[in-house]
Design a protein around this nucleic acid. Structure first.
Lengths: 388, 388
DNA sequence: CTAACATACTTACGGACCGTACGGAAGTAA
DNA sequence: TTACTTCCGTACGGTCCGTAAGTATGTTAG
C-alpha cells in the first residue's frame, strides 16, 4: 500500500535526476543536449537535474569536447563519476578468500586473494579487508555496500550461516562480524551458488535471458534460478536444491549418506567411482582427452544421468539456458557433448546448455552485481535524490 | 531504457491521481480528508486529483455521510465507480463455455453457461457473448478487456491455439475471432491451467503466497507456476509441463503414447487401470469412501508416485504451497492424505499441499483477474490519466 | 580577415502544481 | 444561542517545467 505520491514540485526534479543518472550510467559520457533529447526533457530541466547530481558528487561536468559536434559550439560533456563510491565483494572458500573492490560502474579497482586460518577467521577477515582498502587508497567510509559469498546455508533474514559442510568455520555470524568491523556499510551475506548465478547472468555469455538456471556441479550439486530477471529464492530460501532431486537413483551406499539422491547419482564422487580406478578429476579429463575408453564411458554414463535432471528442469521451468559451473567443468566440452547427446532422446525441446564462461569468477562478479543493485536502489533511486 | 521522466507539472497530478485511485479501489469508499491523510497529500491536491478522476467517470462524489465523524461537519464521501467499465471472462471447455461479466471491482454482474457446437464455434461464441451482454444491459463498447481460456497450447504472441487435444475445434484463431466480433476491446487468450493458477492465487485459500504451484491433475497433468507474484511462462511458454516429468516411469504401454511419462505414471487413466476393474472416477471415490481395499490401495499407489513429483518440484522451486485441482479432486481428501503420507519419507521439508478451493471456477476467476490486471496497467496507471 | 552558419548555453517569463493559511459551512454538545 | 469540531473553498507564495529570445563559441565559405 506504499504508493509513490508527488508531494511538492521537488518531486519532479528527483524523478528527472534519477532518470538522467540512469541514462548517464549506461552511456558513461554525454552532452547536456544529448541527454535532453534522449530523456524527452528540455535542456533547462536537464541542467537543473545535473546541478543536483553534481552537488551529490555523482556526475562531473568536464571541458567542452570539440569532437562531439562537427560544427557549432562544442558541448560541455558530463560524465558519471564511477569513482564517487565503491563496493566490496568477498568470496570465501575453504582456506582462502578473494576480496575485490569495484567502483560504481562495476569495474574492479583493487583485489587480493588471501589465505585464511580456520581459527580466528573473523579477525583475519577484518585485517585482510583493511589491507585491500589501504592498497586501493580507500577509507572504510568510502565503501557503500559489501556482499560476501560462502558455501553453505544462509538465513536470509539475519545473514548468519546455519550450516556449511565444507566451511564449518563460517557458521554463525563470523563473516558478518568480520566485515562489519572493517567497513562502515551494510553487509550482505549469501550462499555462493546463488551469487554465482547472479554473476553468470551479469557477466556470463547469455546476457539478456529472462530465465536462467545455473548449476554448480561438483561433489555436491546446487542450482541458482533467475526468473523474471531476478534471483528466485523459494519459500525457505532453498530453491534450486537439486542435489536432492530424486530421479529413481539407487539407495545410498556406504559413505554416501551425506549426499542427496542426485548428487549420489551424478556428482563427481560417483563419476570417479564409475571409472573403477583411483584417479583425480584432472587425470580423468586428460584420459578422456586421449580418448581412453574407461574415461569416455564414465563421462558418458554420468552425462546421460545428468540429462535426466536437465529434462526435469525443462519440464518444470522451461528456461532459456542452463549454465553449468563447478568442479565438473574441468572435463571441458566432452561432458557437454555427452549431456547433449542424451538429451536428444527427450520429447520436449530442450534448453540451451552452456559451460560457465566465468568459472570461479562468477561468484565474485555476482557479489559485486548484488552490491551495485543495492546502490542503485538505495542511492540512485528517486527517493534517494534530495536537493541539498 | 524507457524510463519515466516528469515532463511538465501535469505529471504530478497524474501520479497523485493514480495513487489515490489505488487507495480508493482497495477502500471502496472514503472521505477526501481520509484519502489525504493516507496518501500524505494536502486536501487540495487530493481534491484536484479527484476532480480529474470524476471527469473520467472513475469516481463519484456522493452525499455527505454524517455517520463518518462523530462530531464536526460531515465529510463528502467519494466512491470508486466499479460500474464505470466491465471485463469479460470466458472459459471454453469441450461442448460448453462459461461467460462471465465482472465490473471493475471484480464482482460478477452477469454470467451464463452455454453449450457450443463443434462446427461454427466462432459464430456461436459471438452470439452467446452478445446475449450475455444484452442480459447485463451492456453494449459491446462497455467491455474494456476480454480474457478467454481453453485447454491446449497457445502462442502467446498471437493468441492462436497451436494444439488442443481435447478441443481441436479451437485450434487457430477461432476463439479470438469469435470474441473480437462480439466486443470492441482487446482480447486475450491463454491456456486454461495458466489462468486457473492466476485464479487460485487471487481467490483461492492462500492469498498472499509469493511462490505457488497449481497442478491440474486429470488424465493429463499440467501445472501453472506463480513466482515473484506473477505467472511464470518459461522460454517457450511451456513452463509447468510436468506431464513430461520423467521420474523413471516405465516405458509407454499400449495406447499411452499420447501421454508424457508423469501422466502415464500418475494420471487418472493409470489410476483406473491400477484398480484392475472397469470403474469410473466417482465410483472409485465412493468405493474408497467405503474403505474397500482395491480402491484405497490404488489411490495409495498413485499418491505415493505423485509425492515423488511433489518432491521434485520442492527440490527445484521450494514453493510455499502446491494447490491440486482437476478431475482427481473428485477423490477428496483421501488422496491428499496418501500424498502427504508418502512425503514424510522425503529428506527436505515439503511445501503445504491443498486441494483447490475453487474447483472449475478457478479458470474463470483467473480470466477476470487477468483482465483486471490489464485494466490496472492500461487504464489506471500514471500514463493513462490525462486531464481533459 | 570577415561574414554566414550551426550548435550550445543563459536568462526571463508564463503555466501548472503543491503546500500553507485563512475564512466560511455544517454538524454536535452544552 | 454559543462554543467546539471537522470539513470545504479560495488566495497566495514557492518550485518546477517548457518556450522563447538573446548570447557565446565553434566551423566553413568567401
Amino acid at each position: 500500500m506504499e504508493r509513490t505520491v508527488a508531494v511538492g514540485t521537488k518531486f519532479m526534479l528527483e524523478v528527472n535526476a534519477s532518470a538522467i543518472l540512469t541514462h548517464l550510467r549506461s552511456a558513461g559520457r554525454a552532452s547536456v543536449s544529448a541527454l535532453a533529447k534522449q530523456a524527452g526533457l528540455s535542456r533547462q530541466a536537464v541542467s537543473r537535474s545535473l546541478a543536483v547530481l553534481e552537488s551529490m558528487g555523482l556526475v562531473e561536468i568536464s571541458a567542452p569536447d570539440r569532437a562531439a559536434t562537427p560544427t557549432g559550439r562544442p558541448p560541455q560533456m558530463v560524465r558519471f563519476r564511477a569513482e564517487a563510491g565503491h563496493v566490496l565483494g568477498v568470496d570465501m572458500q575453504p582456506g582462502h578468500a578473494r576480496i575485490v573492490v569495484a567502483d560504481l560502474a562495476g569495474d574492479i579497482t583493487s583485489e587480493a586473494t588471501v589465505s585464511l586460518p580456520r581459527k580466528g577467521l573473523s579477525r583475519a577477515l577484518t585485517a585482510a579487508v583493511g589491507r585491500v582498502l589501504d592498497e586501493a587508497g580507500l577509507r572504510p567510509g568510502d565503501i557503500w555496500h559489501v556482499s560476501a559469498a560462502a558455501p553453505g546455508i544462509v538465513d536470509p533474514a539475519t545473514g548468519h550461516f546455519t550450516l556449511s559442510v565444507s566451511m564449518p568455520e563460517v557458521v554463525g555470524d563470523t563473516i558478518l562480524a568480520g566485515l562489519r568491523a572493517a567497513v562502515e556499510a551494510p553487509v550482505y551475506v549469501d550462499n555462493d551458488v546463488k551469487l554465482a548465478t547472479t554473476g553468470e547472468r551479469w557477466r556470463g555469455t547469455p546476457h539478456a535471458e529472462d530465465a536462467l538456471v545455473f548449476i554448480d556441479w561438483g561433489e555436491r550439486i546446487g542450482a541458482g534460478i533467475v526468473l523474471h530477471g531476478q534471483l528466485f529464492r523459494g519459500a525457505s530460501n532453498d530453491a534450486g536444491d537439486i542435489g536432492y532431486l530424486d530421479l529413481c537413483a539407487p539407495p545410498a551406499s556406504e559413505g554416501d549418506e551425506d549426499l542427496g539422491p542426485f548428487e549420489r547419482w551424478v556428482g563427481t564422487r560417483e563419476l570417479l567411482r564409475l571409472t573403477g580406478r583411483a584417479v583425480t578429476l584432472p587425470e580423468l579429463a586428460a584420459a578422456a582427452g586421449r580418448g581412453e575408453d574407461w574415461a569416455v564411458s564414465a563421462i558418458g554414463t554420468v552425462g546421460a544421468r545428468f540429462a535426466k535432471g536437465v529434462a526435469a528442469i525443462r519440464a518444470l521451468l522451461d528456461p532459456d539456458v542452463i549454465v553449468i559451473g563447478g568442479d565438473i567443468t574441468q572435463l571441458g566440452t566432452g561432458l557437454l557433448d555427452a549431456v547433449t547427446d542424451a538429451l536428444r532422446a527427450e520429447q520436449l525441446a530442450q534448453p540451451r546448455l552452456e559451460i560457465s564462461a566465468l568459472g570461479a569468477d562468477a561468484i565474485i562478479h555476482g557479489a559485486i552485481r548484488h552490491s551495485l543493485s543495492w546502490v542503485e536502489r538505495e542511492r540512485f533511486d528517486v527517493s534517494a535524490i534530495r536537493r541539498v
